[in-house]
């Protein structure tokens, strides 16, 4: 990639392939996934369970669970490849340059250490500061993520905090060493609906303040619509569509995206049943040839069975992997 037409992306993923060798052959969980995240940008990543959203995050931060492995493609952070680094080199990037927020705040924090201990340890792993300075930073961070009386509560254990408060602590931990990119893997799924919006706001605000980019993994289109600048739609380990949020939501080009949007209930809607896409996502060992979505697609035609569509530009910055777009024109 000689990407000099735009500003250099912070993170660039090209043709990423993740495979799981099993006894019954190799499963391809991610198949030639490509996308960029610009500096300060929030990229939403949506798709059904098993579409490969979390796997993409794990691959980027280098924490794929064995036997899963990156079998192809490359991941670049500010132009430098990070997918082929040693464990130790990658360790220095984790937390320092790429932070990660996990789904369940109840299990993300070590129950036997105080919040202060966990924060200070993380800060001092990556930054050359004294214990006292690290503590000051930790208190400031907690304060920033909205923990009341942070200076006092910092010495509490995780079980002293509610779910929402714990997720704030998790965010503080992920941001402790001021990473350039934060991967948030379903950060609100395990939370009470009433605090979900607050957590997303906190995450978005702090990242905006610090100029950090965010990769927001979720299956909640509402969250994406409110938070993300661009959105990538994953289906069966492939990118179906990627583009600016407004564009994708209002003018979905891929029938799968259109189906997803149709499944969101609206206030005006009067029908009794929610619209849903017929069928289920194929299992990894039986992905059909051609377009992976062809068994469920209402607009399927012969080309879809023969050849796999690749991402093509359908509108400015808006790419779609669908033969309809290809042949019908944008």
């Amino acid at each position: 990639m000689t990407g000099d037409k735009m500003k250099e992306p912070l993170l660039s993923v090209r043709d990423l392939v993740v495979e799981f060798p099993t006894r019954h052959g190799t499963l391809r969980a991610l198949d030639q996934v490509s996308f960029d995240i610009g500096p300060g940008e929030v990229l939403g990543m949506v798709g059904e369970s098993g579409a490969g959203k979390s796997l993409t995050g794990a691959a980027i931060i280098g924490l794929l669970e064995p036997p899963g492995r990156i079998a192809g493609g490359e991941i670049r952070l500010r132009g430098a490849r990070i997918d082929n680094l040693s464990y130790e080199q990658m360790r220095r990037i984790r937390g320092r340059r790429i932070g990660m927020v996990f789904q369940d705040p109840l299990t993300s924090l070590n129950p036997l250490y105080t919040v202060a201990q966990q924060l200070i340890q993380t800060i001092r792993t990556h930054m050359d500061v004294s214990e006292a300075d690290a503590r000051k930073r930790a208190v400031a961070l907690l304060d920033r993520v909205g923990i009341p009386a942070a200076a006092r509560r910092i010495d509490d254990y995780p079980h002293h905090f509610s779910g929402g408060m714990r997720q704030r602590v998790v965010i503080a931990l992920a941001l402790a060493a001021e990473p350039e990119l934060v991967i948030a893997d379903e950060p609100t799924t395990a939370l009470d609906v009433s605090v979900q919006a607050q957590i997303i706001d906190v995450l978005k605000e702090i990242c905006a303040e610090r100029g950090a980019s965010v990769m927001l993994i979720t299956h909640d289109m509402g969250v994406i619509a409110e938070t993300a600048d661009r959105v990538a739609v994953l289906y069966a380990g492939r990118v179906a569509e990627i583009g600016p949020v407004r564009d994708v939501i209002q003018h979905a080009r891929h029938p799968y995206t259109a189906g997803l949007m149709g499944a969101i209930p609206t206030l005006e809607q009067t029908s009794d049943r929610l619209v849903q896409i017929p069928g289920a996502m194929p299992r990894l060992n039986s992905i059909p040839t051609g377009c992976a979505f062809n068994p469920r697609c209402a607009h399927v035609f012969d080309h879809c069975y023969r050849e796999r569509p690749v991402l093509r530009q359908a509108a400015p910055q808006h790419e779609v992997a669908c033969w309809l777009t290809e042949e019908g024109g944008a």
Binding site: I61, L63, R91, R92, I93, R94, G95, R96, G99, M100, F102, D104, T107, S108, L109, N110, P111, Y113, Q121, T122, T125, H126, V170, L173, A174, A176, A177
Partner: peptide, 21 residues
């Protein structure tokens, strides 16, 4: 467990993860 995964994602050293956490 998740908290070990999260500790790895924060880039803590193996020693800190294995013998501390």
């Amino acid at each position: 467990t998740d908290y070990i995964k999260f500790a790895r994602a924060r880039g803590l050293s193996n020693r800190a993860i294995h013998f501390g956490h």
